[in-house]
Amino acid sequence: MKTLLFLAVAVAAQAAGNICLSLGMRHLAAAFNADSGDWIALAGLALTSPWLWAGAALLATFTLLFTLVLSWTDLSLALPVISVEIVVNVGLAGWLLGESVSPLHWLGTLLVAAGVALVVGTARDKAPVQEGQPA
C-alpha cells in the first residue's frame, strides 16, 4: 500500500512536470524570435520561466520518490508501475493541451494500463520456498 501510494504520487509529479515543461517550452517558443539568433536572451527567458522551474522541481520530486521506493520494493515491480505515467500523459495531453490522440496511442495506453494492473496484482508475490530453506 505504501509502495503504491508513493508510486502514485511519483507518477502524478512526473505527469505534472511534463505538462509544465511542455507549457514552458510553448511560451518560450512564442516569446523568442529564432531569427534574431540571440541565444543569451533565450537562456534568460528559460531561466526566468516559472513553468520550466516548476517542471524541473516536479521531475526532481519524481526521481527522489522513485529512488526512495526502490529501498523497500522490487525494481521489477516499481519500474513497470511507473509506466502508467504514459496513460496519464496521453489523457492530459488530449484534455489540457488539446493535442489530438490517435486510436493507436489509445490502444497503446490501454495495453500499458492492463500491464500495470497485472504487475500491481503481483505486489504481494513471494519467491517460492526452496527445499531445505526455512519457510
Binding site: 525494481l75 500499458v112 500491464g115 494492473a117 503481483t122
Partner: peptide
C-alpha cells in the same frame, strides 16, 4: 532484476511487463 538482483519475477509479472513494453512501443 531477476538475474542480478535475484528478485522473484512470476510469470504473471512477466506478462504485465510484456504488455507494458508492447503498449509503450505502440504509444
Amino acid at each position: 532484476a531477476q538475474l542480478i538482483l535475484k528478485e522473484h519475477v512470476s510469470l504473471r509479472r512477466w506478462a504485465g511487463v510484456s504488455l507494458v513494453c508492447t503498449g509503450m512501443i505502440l504509444v
